[in-house]
């Protein structure tokens, strides 16, 4: 188009492949690193066996190596990447919806609802029991979605939802739900460490079940975000302008809220409440390729995956053989980076 569009396009054309390559590199590191000592060659061999098994149907050898690589590390890697994709996209959509670069995926109460859902589930079944593997994510997802729906209904006035009302209602309802969660934690008889680990966000003890749960969110969500790039760009101009350009703003906001919430709830259901990724990654992506969602959506998705893979490696390595909740890593890295962005950008806009 113009030179600007071409320049942005060129940056995008370089940045996206670089991030994807870095993501593959980080993925290999993630597969090589772990408590059990395997050589990279062994790991790659196990991966190839797994791939062959998938294609030909011949089962791969049943031993510790294959089981660790194919049933522990590989699903965990995919889970980290998919959670990163969901959180980054959810944040990008929320920021467009609120026309505010400070919005994050949890702004309308997804995290508090998911927290309550998860705690209720853990009171009913042990989180790592076979039933808990499904119950916790399912109730977390239901809790997150229910709170967003409640916030949306409470924010409606004469059929319209004002963004500021949505934000404040989200904060109010979120506090109430968090209070309910705290109360349950006090009366709960189970071990609180497990609950805390979940609330802080983490990927330990997850497997292919969880990958299967979040994969549809990530794939459908990514495609939906690509479809929504024009409405999101228009909304950044302001709701009146977007409406004057022929966008049905009310409908667009409802769809974007649903999209963002389903992405966030999907991520929280399998990974717990992982902070800062959804807030910071869209910022990084915007610094790299500008605010145009045609470029922002793919770059944010790829950056989210890369960041989460690296954070998960750090969570496993830093206090090995023990493990840190990944939410602690993302907060420890995300908060200073975000403050740096705030100070650096001053009034220059985003």
């Amino acid at each position: 188009m113009t030179t600007t569009a071409r320049r942005d396009g060129r940056v995008f054309g370089v940045v996206l492949p670089l991030i994807l390559i870095a993501g593959v590199g980080a993925g290999l590191i993630s597969l090589f690193v772990g408590a059990a000592e395997q050589s990279p060659a062994q790991v790659v061999g196990a991966l190839l066996d797994g791939g062959r098994a998938l294609v030909t149907g011949h089962p791969y050898p049943v031993d510790t190596l294959h089981s660790i690589v194919l049933n522990l590390r590989l699903p965990r890697l995919l889970l980290a990447a998919l959670v990163g994709v969901c959180l980054a996209l959810s944040g990008s959509v929320m920021q467009a919806l609120f026309q505010n670069p400070m919005a994050d995926p949890y702004i309308v109460g997804v995290s508090s609802g998911a927290g309550l859902g998860a705690v209720v589930a853990m009171m009913l079944v042990a989180p790592l029991a076979p039933l808990g593997l499904v119950t916790v994510p399912a109730l977390a997802f239901a809790g997150g979605a229910a709170v967003v729906l409640l916030v949306y209904i409470l924010s409606q006035r004469a059929g319209r939802v004002h963004t500021a009302t949505l934000l404040l209602t989200g904060i109010a309802v979120g506090s109430l739900v968090a209070a309910a969660t705290s109360f349950l934690l006090l009366v709960m008889e189970q071990d609180l460490r497990g609950v805390l680990f979940w609330l802080l966000g983490g990927l330990s003890g997850r497997g292919w079940t969880h990958v299967a749960m979040i994969a549809p969110h990530a794939v459908v969500g990514f495609v939906a975000c690509l479809v929504a790039v024009r409405p999101m760009n228009l909304l950044l101009l302001g709701e009146d302008t977007a409406a004057s350009l022929g966008l049905d703003v009310g409908q667009a906001k409802r769809w974007l809220l649903a999209l963002s919430s389903l992405l966030a709830a999907g991520a929280v259901a399998v990974g717990g409440i992982i902070a800062f990724v959804g807030l910071v990654v869209p910022h990084i992506a915007r610094l790299l390729v500008g605010p145009d969602h045609r470029h922002l959506v793919p770059v944010a998705a790829a950056s989210g995956a890369l960041l989460m893979i690296l954070a998960d490696v750090a969570a496993r390595v830093l206090v090995a053989p023990s493990e840190l909740p990944i939410g602690i890593i993302t907060s420890a890295l995300g908060c200073p980076f975000f403050l740096y962005l705030l100070r650096r950008q001053g009034g220059r806009g985003l």
Partner: peptide, 23 residues
């Protein structure tokens, strides 16, 4: 003010939405 750093061209091009549509 527009807090997002679009180029002038990109903002003006959004005026074509009524003709171009979503996809």
């Amino acid at each position: 003010t527009l807090p997002f750093a679009f180029s002038v061209y990109d903002v003006v091009a959004m005026g074509r939405h009524p003709y171009v549509g979503l996809l």
